[in-house]
Design a protein around this nucleic acid. Sequence first.
DNA 1: TTGACATATTCCGGTATCGGTATATATTGA
DNA 2: TCAATATATACCGATACCGGAATATGTCAA
Lengths: 117, 117
Amino acid sequence: MARAATTADAFNAVAEPRRREILDLLAGGESAVNDIVERLGLTQPQVSKHLRVLREVGLVDVRDEGRQRLYRLNGPALKPIHDWVSSYERTWSERFERLDAVLEDLKRKDEGDDLHD
Amino acid sequence: MARAATTADAFNAVAEPRRREILDLLAGGESAVNDIVERLGLTQPQVSKHLRVLREVGLVDVRDEGRQRLYRLNGPALKPIHDWVSSYERTWSERFERLDAVLEDLKRKDEGDDLHD
DNA sequence: TTGACATATTCCGGTATCGGTATATATTGA
DNA sequence: TCAATATATACCGATACCGGAATATGTCAA
């Protein structure tokens, strides 16, 4: 067994910086392959290959328009990543630190009440 | 050039499912290597190797305690992933759809005002 | 049909992975 | 010092990557 395929899931597909750049670009709207090539300064086969990976994990959709192929973002395919990483947000967000402090206070108060039973 | 090293950044480190499992476990608190081995059903070298990768990208910290090594999560190292993926949240979150609708209304109203100049 | 354009695929070399097995490096205790 | 425990590392085989270059496929236009 070797490293998981880049097409295994969104986590693997998105680990490649150029693929993230492509997604960032597509976030601005549908784009043809050569547009991406020019705007990112990559070679055409490079872009086609990255787009294939993104397609296979459902991160982009394609549409034929004459001799062009227009790619567009499929954002919801990123949700699993967002869901996973969001559960860690409390480890750096002040917002959650304050919430934790409040919950801590409530808990302490509860324990105090118990002593009165 | 081949695929980027797993130690290149958090994106690559986290693409491996077992490493995510380890982080999920450490989210519950500091843990020794053998605890992780038992709770995840992996072999000891497997765990040590994954921990090494996580350490090299700063996702975990270590502390020596006798003959054990206690690993703990360093959540903020996940922030770059969260930041990147969060910018796409609007593509699936109803919350943002509603916000977009409001902004659209405001814009339309503005354009209406312009006509009155 | 031929040629130009847009995109996809194939083949290659170099590299780094992941799991397994064996072994090395601490640290503790008798 | 010696054995036991806890963890890290080294080596291996198999796999799949990524970029580059060449080429294949597909579509339009004259």
